[in-house]
Write a protein that binds this DNA or RNA. Structure first.
Lengths: 204, 204
DNA sequence: CCACCAAGTAATCATGCGTTGACATGGTCC
DNA sequence: GGACCATGTCAACGCATGATTACTTGGTGG
């Protein structure tokens, strides 16, 4: 398998015996490979090589491949909002969405971070983590949109989550054009229309 | 690995020496496992066991695992439209979408067929197939929606494709609720709003 | 300077998997 | 019935990979 040079390794200077740096290097390399290649196609040997570190150290610091994967997953941003929550109002929501979806600078992941979130290690615990992360995002959308208490408001919010997931997949993993090449500005108009259509007439 | 009994094997009667039936059985088993588990976690031994067939026969009939995968992929429906194209008009489009996305009876795939389409074997040729299939779907959407010749009409159509992909992923692979439990009727209203928001005021 | 322990290394093990080739068997046509 | 080919079976190989163990190295505190 052994795909080479997925990440431009930080070309570290002569760092010697720095445990936390080693940990960090492994994590960065792991995120990139897991995000791009998925769980199975990511080999510990490649990750260790990318990190410039001995293979056995992933056992020392993360216990196992699964442990490394979960640690990498735990560093995934909350997709949108990044903890700070989504901006209020639908126009702002649409804009935040378009920015996040079109951003190209995911150096820590190599691709859109939501792909890391979708990667499957086969562990049910991981599936649950993913579900929770996306549900949380749905909640933020619901809240940010100043939702009318419609009975299907939650469903509509999750459709927006699904849209975000789909766009990330189609852009990063499929490369469908023109979607894959669209800039935040290109995306903004259509996304605004979707948000307004989905969530009802503008309210903020 | 060896997950067992992913598919309720057809409990075939004493079929003996029927090449085409063997081929078909392998294909059905392969579709289910590939769709549910992905390429890497699907083992030929499990597929053969599901099909009630000897392992070496996949070499005979499909040459290799990659060959089996491509054959399985080739049987994936065109996602929507199923060759016949999408119904004309936006209301009909929204309805077709909601039906396809909410359908539960994908016995040949075990999950929504779009997941099969997203499965990655690492082969670039497969990526291209996928791109083509989704692009084709985008074209159908564009055409079915009686698009105004807006400069970003294509982009908007592909956003609808992305939505479909995202919903399939979030429903089948993530299990986000309430989205995962939504019926076609539940989906219809919100989808209609999205379609109309995205594609402009109703025109058919 | 020395002892000690964390950090790092190298070699090896165990296993699961795709692939392969040699062999058995059934059905069909002369 | 016998030859012949398609169909199906069996056992094994080779390889990649995750895991593990025994060992070395370096720096830090006494």
């Amino acid at each position: 398998m052994s795909t080479d040079d997925v990440t431009g390794r930080p070309a570290d200077g002569p760092r010697r015996r720095d445990a936390s740096a080693t940990r960090r290097a492994l994590l960065v390399a792991a995120r990139t490979r897991f995000t791009r290649l998925g769980y199975d196609r990511t080999t510990l040997r490649d990750v260790a090589a990318d990190a410039g570190v001995n293979l056995a150290l992933v056992k020392r610091y993360f216990g196992s491949k699964e442990g490394l994967f979960k640690a990498a997953l735990a560093t995934a941003p909350r997709f949108l909002g990044e903890g700070s929550g989504l901006p209020r109002g639908r126009a702002a929501l649409a804009e935040a969405l378009s920015r996040q979806l079109a951003a190209g600078a995911w150096t820590e992941f190599g691709e859109h971070p939501v792909l890391m979130l979708l990667r499957d290690s086969g562990d049910e615990q991981v599936t649950e983590l993913r579900r929770r992360a996306l549900a949380e995002f749905g909640r933020q959308v619901l809240e940010a949109s100043g939702a009318a208490p419609a009975p299907d408001a939650e469903l509509r919010a999750e459709l927006l989550v699904a849209l975000g997931v789909g766009v990330a997949v189609v852009r990063s993993a499929v490369g469908l054009r023109p979607l894959a090449d669209a800039t935040p500005e290109d995306l903004l108009g259509p996304l605004r229309d979707i948000v307004e259509g989905l969530l009802g007439p503008p309210s903020g």
